[in-house]
Amino acid sequence: MLSGSNFCRARSLSVDNEALLPITPKANHHPPITNMATDQASQRTFGGTRFRWFARGTAVGMLLVAVVNALSYFVRSSDWGNLIGEAESNDEAIGFPFVVWEAGNTYNGFYADYPMLFLNVLVAVSLGSILGVVVARHRDRLNRLVEDFEIEAAEESKRPIQFSLLGLLIVTTLCAVFVAIAVKVAARPETLLAIYSLGPICLVAIAMLPRRLSWQRRVAIITPSALMLIAVAIAVGIRLGMEFDKVMMGIFLCWTPQSAVAAIALTTTLFIQQARR
């Protein structure tokens, strides 16, 4: 048996040994804190992976082929009066590089030559893929430009929306022109011609005139405005005795080149301006 003094001495030695043992931290059972705002911002960004940029480049290439297909009507057709309800001509055709539709051809009960349409789609995908590869190779630089642009756009969107005096003047002029057309030549070929030729320009002008708007809000302005303008064109075409598909074909043939060129030119201009800063 240990005496009282020996017991106290042994107790003090055990306490000293416990003090020398390494202290292990307690396990933290809480999940790591992540920056949710950063994750959400990265999900909202327009930039992306190599595949996403390849898909975007391919889509742009296919859009350019669609533009050429729309313009092919004005090359392959000798009379364009059918688009505004003035003349009935069978000398009409659409398609690049192969003709997919020709007036007077029944195509065995189908609306178009679908085998040739399939070949045209293959050509569009092939040419678009080439552009997609080029765009994907510059993914890192494009992502940096997009990130800088989105930061500036976020700062601009926090400011109040304003109309400049020039913007108000342009909007007023456009409204006056459309009112004059609606009153004087509502159901005449000139109305359709004005919608075909000036529709995309007016839509882009209306969406771009307000300052400090995000591109999502501008799209929200263009979409219903375009649908309303298409509805007006269909109503005018019906009063002129035109078929529904003929009016829609005119909108496709005239709006596709204008819209595609405007979108590509605007995007390219933004990238060039951002790269120079």
Rank of each mutant, 00 (worst) to 15 (best):
G61D: 06
V65W: 14
V67I: 11
V68E: 05
N69D: 08
L71C: 05
S72M: 05
S72R: 03
Y73Q: 03
F74P: 04
V75R: 04
S78F: 00
W80D: 13
N82E: 06
I84D: 02
G85D: 08
G85Q: 05
G85M: 09
E86C: 05
A87E: 13
E88N: 14
S89M: 04
D91Y: 01
E92P: 03
A93I: 07
I94F: 01
I94S: 00
G95K: 00
G95I: 00
P97T: 04
F98L: 11
V99I: 14
V99T: 13
V99Y: 00
V100H: 02
W101A: 02
E102G: 00
E102L: 01
G104A: 02
T106E: 12
T106A: 13
T106F: 06
T106Y: 09
Y107H: 12
G109W: 09
F110H: 13
Y111K: 13
Y111A: 15
A112L: 08
P115Q: 03
L117Y: 10
F118K: 06
L119P: 00
L119E: 02
L119V: 10
V123G: 02
V123R: 01
A124K: 01
A124N: 06
V125R: 04
V125N: 03
V125A: 15
L127D: 08
G128S: 10
G128H: 02
S129F: 14
L131I: 15
G132Q: 08
G132M: 06
V135R: 07
V135D: 04
H138L: 07
H138M: 12
H138R: 14
D140W: 07
D140L: 09
R141D: 08
R141T: 10
L145A: 05
L145K: 07
E147Y: 11
E147H: 10
E147K: 10
D148V: 11
D148K: 14
F149T: 11
F149M: 15
E150P: 05
I151C: 09
E152M: 11
A153F: 06
A153W: 05
A154E: 14
A154C: 03
E155F: 09
E156H: 12
S157T: 11
S157W: 04
K158C: 07
K158D: 12
R159V: 03
R159L: 15
P160T: 13
I161S: 10
I161P: 07
